[in-house]
Design a protein around this nucleic acid. Structure first.
Length: 210
DNA sequence: CTCCCGATAT
DNA sequence: ATATCAGGAG
């Protein structure tokens, strides 16, 4: 087995429970929650969304929301004015072009404001089971670079490198496995290499870098 | 590259 | 006190 596949195998075994942490009951809720999760923990998003989804039950409700009020409703997730604008405008487009439904294609999702490949991949995979790519967030980016899976910095280029290395059946779970490892062991600041299950396969082990 | 911004770790 | 964080747009 290649070094890369051995790493993936060990990490999957180390974090067998790893999966999406965002709470949602339908594709629209997942889309909104994922937009909110930018630069914010899923845990905090989950503190805001139950109330939010009660107040705004569908895309039309978000599209017709008062912008200032919506912003206050999501305030604690940070970047709240931006996110409120993205959500309102995205939902306006959903109502206008897709009957209030969340479209099932990458291209259509990428048309929405506040939605790039990371968000689109998460929504497609977890709401519809459609796997077209690998969501690259900061955890995935940091670990992919530390593990020597890529030298790139641009998320889209990192995604391409990962799609070459990782078997397609793992594309949907791998971000959650990497996030779990990134939160617990391979942290941004002081990675706990002494407790890492892939230490012997990691080119960055013991080093003190990004 | 800069801006958006509150919450949390250090 | 302040550095950094589950992104994306201009």
């Amino acid at each position: 087995m290649s070094r890369e596949l051995e790493i993936l195998d060990r990490l999957k075994k180390a974090y067998p429970e790893a999966r999406i942490a965002l709470k949602f009951e339908n594709p629209l809720q997942l889309l909104i929650a994922t937009i909110l999760s930018a630069q914010c923990t899923d845990e905090r998003v989950n503190q805001v969304t139950p109330e939010l989804f009660k107040k705004y039950p569908d895309a039309r409700a978000f599209a017709e929301a008062d912008l200032e009020e919506l912003a206050q409703d999501i305030r604690s997730t940070g970047f709240y004015k931006q996110k409120a604008r993205y959500i309102k405008e995205a939902c306006r487009i959903l109502v206008e072009k897709y009957g209030g439904e969340v479209p099932k294609s990458l291209e259509a999702l990428l048309e929405l404001p506040g939605v790039a490949r990371k968000t689109a991949n998460i929504v497609l995979a977890n709401a519809y089971g459609i796997v077209e790519g690998i969501p690259v967030d900061t955890h995935v980016r940091r670990l992919a670079r530390r593990l020597g899976f890529t030298q790139e910095k641009d998320p889209d280029k990192i995604e391409r490198d990962l799609m070459r290395i990782i078997p397609r059946e793992d594309w949907a779970v791998i971000p959650y496995v990497l996030q779990a490892h990134g939160r617990t062991i391979c942290t941004a600041r002081k990675p706990k290499c002494d407790r890492c299950p892939v230490r012997d396969l990691c080119p960055s082990a013991g080093k003190d870098l990004a």
